[in-house]
Amino acid sequence: MDLLTYPFMLRALAGALIIGLAAPALGVYLVQRRLSLIGDGIGHVALTGVGVGLLTHQSPVLTAVLVSVFGAIAVELVRERGRTSGDLALALLFYGGIAGGVVLVGLSDDASNASLMQYLFGSLITTSPTDIAVIAVLGAAVLAAMLVFRPALFALCNDEEYARVSGLPVRTLNLLLAVTTAVTVTIAMRTVGLLLVSALMVVPVAAAQQLTRGFRSTMAVAMLIGICAAGAGVVVSGEIDTAPGATTVLLAIAAFLLATGAGALWHRRPGSPSPAPVEPPDVVLHG
């Protein structure tokens, strides 16, 4: 595999592996909360950040982090209110984000379609040494936060009101999730691309669920699937010259199909734990 002797390939691989671990570690909380698509929305907002970076000749990764963190906090504040109009507010934010990004990138000196595609679908060769340093630091921070605060984040995403009555800093934890979502989206942008980032947060979790019974095991298996899909995605796309993000996502979906099949077989095999005995219905009659 002489491709891996190229430094840019090694950088791409290192970035992909970090994201392959961090994205599902965060995604498991988002899926638990049934906010699977939030990463996609933040990805749209991040594109405006890329536009700002290209226009002002700053690092697009840095400006994308700032703008998408801002967007994620706005989304969280809308969610917290729980208004019915929240749905529409989110739609405005997302479409505003992607439209703003396309316009800003178009206005910049680097206004080629190719540069836009790089951010939307990811690209291997563009990951610079600075980028990889940013990805490593931020990815490690996301991963550490998700692992250290697992009991608290689990309680929060499982039952927010109970977490509140437990005296947990619910608002701070919600903002932590929002900010880490934004950070994960932006660091994954260079490898997987903004349009496919969410897949790396959600698909490994969906695949892991087919095999597991608890939250902790789901998280662990999802991270394993994530890192394998991301690593294999970079190598395969380098070999057969396909888009790395799309290749990674297809591999993750393949893992999902495989896990679904394996899960079905596992449950059907003789001697598997029988379904839980059903309690008789409430038979206390009165009134």
Binding site: Q32, N158, V205, Q209, T218
Partner: peptide, 15 residues
Amino acid sequence: AGSGVPATVGEVVSS
């Protein structure tokens, strides 16, 4: 409401 991911009885009670 958070039940998008399976959680065991032990994990819920641990909260």
